[in-house]
Design a protein around this nucleic acid. Sequence first.
DNA 1: AGTATTGTGATTAACTGGGTGAATTGCTAT
DNA 2: ATAGCAATTCACCCAGTTAATCACAATACT
Lengths: 274, 274
Amino acid sequence: MENLANQEQSIELLQQLGLKEYEAKSFVALSRLPQGTAKEISDISEVPRTRVYDSIRVLEQKGLVEIHHSNPKQFRTVSIDEAVNILKSEYVTRIESLRESLTDLEPAGTDEETEITHEVWALSGGAAIEARTEQLINEAEGELIMVAGNNRMLTDGLIGALQAATNRGVTVVVGVADDSLRDTLIDAVPQARVFISELPWLDSSSLQGDETEINRLLLIDRSTILASSTHDPDVPEHEKAVFGRGFNNGLVTIVRRLMVTGLLSEDDPGEAAA
Amino acid sequence: MENLANQEQSIELLQQLGLKEYEAKSFVALSRLPQGTAKEISDISEVPRTRVYDSIRVLEQKGLVEIHHSNPKQFRTVSIDEAVNILKSEYVTRIESLRESLTDLEPAGTDEETEITHEVWALSGGAAIEARTEQLINEAEGELIMVAGNNRMLTDGLIGALQAATNRGVTVVVGVADDSLRDTLIDAVPQARVFISELPWLDSSSLQGDETEINRLLLIDRSTILASSTHDPDVPEHEKAVFGRGFNNGLVTIVRRLMVTGLLSEDDPGEAAA
DNA sequence: AGTATTGTGATTAACTGGGTGAATTGCTAT
DNA sequence: ATAGCAATTCACCCAGTTAATCACAATACT
């Protein structure tokens, strides 16, 4: 039965990569055959036979399928690796062109640079949040406090950034979820202070009906914070974050107080005063 | 005015990468501003003000835009690099998932393995054709004749494959369009016989009204051929090819005769007999 | 020739996305 | 407070696209 799932997933992915439903289904059907006619494809996919021809024609023009002009026509896919590489190169070139053309867009001159007082921004998506996290870490000048509610939040990239931060003299305090990561972190970033975070306000179970987990907490130089949460840690796209800047920012003030007191007093009250 | 073109291209590319028109336009507009409100975005894009909100919301969920929840709401894009990386990773994961799920699709058991007598297949797209070319080169056991109607047809990958072919004892004959490539080829694949192809049947100008150029010609072990052509060498997607297998295949027979006689007798009649 | 199968084209139905305006919300200035 | 204005959301319509079906021509097979 897992094959069924594979089939569904293949179709889904192909559609996300720009193919139409019939094209995706025809391609997957054809992938399961050494070669096939319109009838055979129609039989094992749910594509009306009369529409297989259109679909295959498009696939052929994308270079994913070969056509043998006999009667009945025979079709077959190029190898999976070829097909995937074709799709990949298509997107790689698009992405690179995009980077270039975005880079030299002409700035639009709306002179009113509305100053934002309480700078609190919302963003979502694991990738975006991680990128922002790394950027903030690199901005740190004096102190950096970070709590990872979940081990997979501490990627190699972030650890590298933490390392760089300690190297330029930033005080780094990191909370992690369990021992294993604690040890690797101590290895990688020896100057950092690492602890196991068991902070009560991290624990969602204390709040009834709230399945939201806190993923990341970041406090940079006591003036910039980033907090992210998610309902389902397995779906990075659902991660949501707010981040705020400015010592006098309301959000920053609250979180700063929570983190600095709660955190520094937790397992080493001595440092809280410092 | 080049900026206008950049703007157009950015919008186009973003749409190809899966964004809707309004989303793409909003993103590009916002990219030209340090930050902006719905009104500002609507002014410099052609997105109705009331639809900016939908669009931005989607962009935010993709991690491309940050939202400042004030009134009026402020929006801003993440940095270009972040944005591009997010899009890239999105597609990289999709491609990789696709490769996996395609790889273990269950083969469909249509027992009738219809044997194909005159195996002549059509395929299009520069990438697909090049991949097939390389694969055929790697199949060669005894003799390999290749003519590139155009210098850009001889990529590094192909040259590498040719090299490998000579190393396993395959006789390699390559025709190229001009001296410069000839020299680099001789360097890279010393055992190959390289010549400048000025074959009359390669020259489209001899045929009135036919703008089609021959791109590649490939003859493997005198039993497999690949021929590709294009109307416009600058648009790789328009390249079309046929390839055929089997010593007794009609197409193969004809092309084999054309190539072997016409080619080998052209600048060195001595070898034609051999 | 007759019948089944294959291929092409046209036609209809369903859906998606662009475009527009009304209803709601929130702020500001009487 | 409340009228007025801007900002925001919501709901709807229209057009283009795509899915789905049908009718018919072309081809092979008996």
